[in-house]
Amino acid sequence: MKLFMVTILLAGGLLMMIISMDMIMGVKFPEIIWKAVNPFRVMESAEYLILFLLFFLFLSRRMWLFLKKRDNSNSSSN
Rank of each mutant, 00 (worst) to 15 (best):
F66I: 04
S76T: 09
L59I: 09
W34I: 07
M21C: 10
L59D: 00
G26I: 02
V6G: 03
E44W: 00
N72E: 15
N72T: 09
T7N: 15
G13N: 05
V27E: 08
I19V: 13
K68Q: 06
F4R: 12
L65Y: 06
V37N: 02
R61S: 06
N72M: 04
N38P: 05
N78L: 05
K69P: 02
R62V: 09
N78W: 06
L54S: 01
M43N: 02
G26S: 01
L10Q: 13
K28V: 07
I18L: 14
L49R: 03
F40Y: 14
T7L: 13
R62M: 10
V27L: 07
L59C: 07
V27T: 06
P39A: 07
L49Q: 12
F40M: 13
K69I: 04
L9E: 12
Y48K: 15
M16A: 14
F56Q: 06
M63G: 06
I8A: 12
I18K: 15
T7Y: 05
G26Q: 10
S45C: 01
L51W: 04
F29N: 03
S60V: 14
V6C: 06
L9I: 05
N38I: 12
S73K: 03
R61W: 05
L54V: 07
S76E: 04
F52S: 09
L57D: 03
S76P: 05
E44R: 08
W64Y: 04
N72K: 11
L9S: 10
V27I: 11
